[in-house]
Design a binder for these strands. Structure first.
Lengths: 253, 253
DNA sequence: CGTGGGGTTGATTCTTATCAATTCGGGTGG
DNA sequence: CCACCCGAATTGATAAGAATCAACCCCACG
């Protein structure tokens, strides 16, 4: 079900997803690296559909994702669901629940996953011992906010086709897939709850985009046939996913 | 236009909005108080409609709000606008732009405002000298995320009446107005761009809520006539705006 | 008195949801 | 290999929600 494992088959390049993710921003010192590694000591396997964090539960646990996908969501009283985030390897799950008595959202795996649960005390050690990592965590929070903002803009002001196109391009950018085909293990129900649509309308919209020769989405695979057209339709600009270097740099160099 | 002033006519209780806002979470030491006050040295008046932060500009400035309202927004290429935040006294503007070369959103005042611009270096001083304040800023970021999340849920999964009702209740909670009537200086165009609707539909929705005897919205004033009904309609629960005490407490007591 | 911004209303159109039926594709077991 | 089953995806018909367009009202302000 969710057995421990020491050797992770991470999709990240080196031994640690978090490290390679943070190295995107600055060069880490050995001390910083070992501090970050304390967050990844406890690699654990989870099955697809596993509930990592439960809405309304009072457990405060974080996870670093080593491999696999997850989503966070919220259930309304009338049964509707809204998906808020898609988590990929190298991300930290649960950061935003800091400071609340009860978790306000759930997190569920979308695929088999290897993740490392860690208690919040360990974050605190990092804050007090590594100021540059504190900055980085602050920037991660800022970036998370911008991903949420983009979703608000997407849902609030773009019709279905533009909305789906934007989401697909966002996922491609986050996956750093520069190829025209990439894996996207999200079915239409997940897409719908992410984009504020119904599964049926997602289906129609996918068909429309395919007929326009822009992109095709099937079987957990996305194939972009007209990248320029798709980008223009979606009004997509990846700046918000960017490399975030300046702030930390300013305080280091 | 935007003249400096030393004596602020803040709507906050004591000399500093930020302090009284942070005091909600923990009791601050004198050192912490004086550090926070370094963010509020430069009280400045701005007129209604003033652009505090411009999309795409490379200035990194923060503001603490002492009095007045502001909103942050993003303009799409087709002219549509989405409003992302409403800023109230005691909040800090610009936190999420940390780490980006260029600002990704604009911030504009909704009323005459007194705010204190400060450079990002000052935030850094706080981070390195006051670990508890660092925690608090982290929590502020987490709370900001939850406000964005609530907006995503609202726009993605609730029809217009529920959406407006939820927003009104959120604003009332944030204003800590326990009365049934409170000031809300937002015209229907602002409401529309906040909620992902058109001004016309906002007008109709206001009418509908009024006719149902739930709430009336006129002249920058909101009067709630049936709080329970409105709360039930909106599926509103204020937990995400809550007092966030536990995390910091755990690391202090 | 005009004038203009904000708000309201009705008619119409467009988009998306809802409901219902069908197809597709990948297992499973005979 | 085939029959069956199940979840996911597709399609069509219809209904509901929201946008758009255009006209009008109201009122504060010069």
């Amino acid at each position: 079900m969710n057995k421990k494992k020491n050797q992770s088959d991470s999709i990240c390049t080196d031994e640690s997803c978090l490290l390679s993710s943070f190295q995107n921003y600055i060069d880490l010192t050995e001390v910083e690296k070992s501090l970050l590694k304390t967050l990844e000591q406890d690699a654990t396997e989870y099955t697809r559909g596993h509930l990592l964090l439960e809405e309304n539960s009072s457990e405060h646990r974080f996870y670093t994702v080593m491999s696999g996908w997850a989503y966070s969501s919220r259930l309304l009283t009338d049964g509707k669901r809204q998906i808020l985030d898609i988590f990929l390897p190298g991300q930290i799950i649960g950061l935003r629940e800091v400071g609340y008595d009860r978790s306000l959202t759930s997190v569920t795996t979308l695929s088999p996953m290897v993740a490392c649960p860690f208690p919040k005390e360990r974050l605190h050690t990092i804050f007090s011992e590594a100021p540059r990592l504190t900055d980085l965590f602050f920037m991660v929070m800022a970036r998370d906010q911008h991903m949420l903002i983009e979703r608000i803009i997407n849902i609030g002001r773009r019709p279905a086709a533009e909305r789906l196109a934007h989401f697909l391009l966002e996922m491609r950018a986050r996956l750093q897939a520069d190829t025209s085909t990439f894996e996207l293990p999200l079915n239409q129900a997940i897409l719908a709850d992410t984009l504020g649509l119904t599964p049926i309308h997602v289906s129609r919209t996918i068909k429309k985009l395919r007929e326009q020769g822009l992109v095709s989405v099937t079987n957990g695979k996305v194939t972009i046939s007209n990248e320029h057209g798709l980008t223009r339709l979606a009004d997509f600009s990846p700046a918000y996913l960017g490399k975030l270097t300046s702030w930390v740099r300013k305080n280091i160099d």
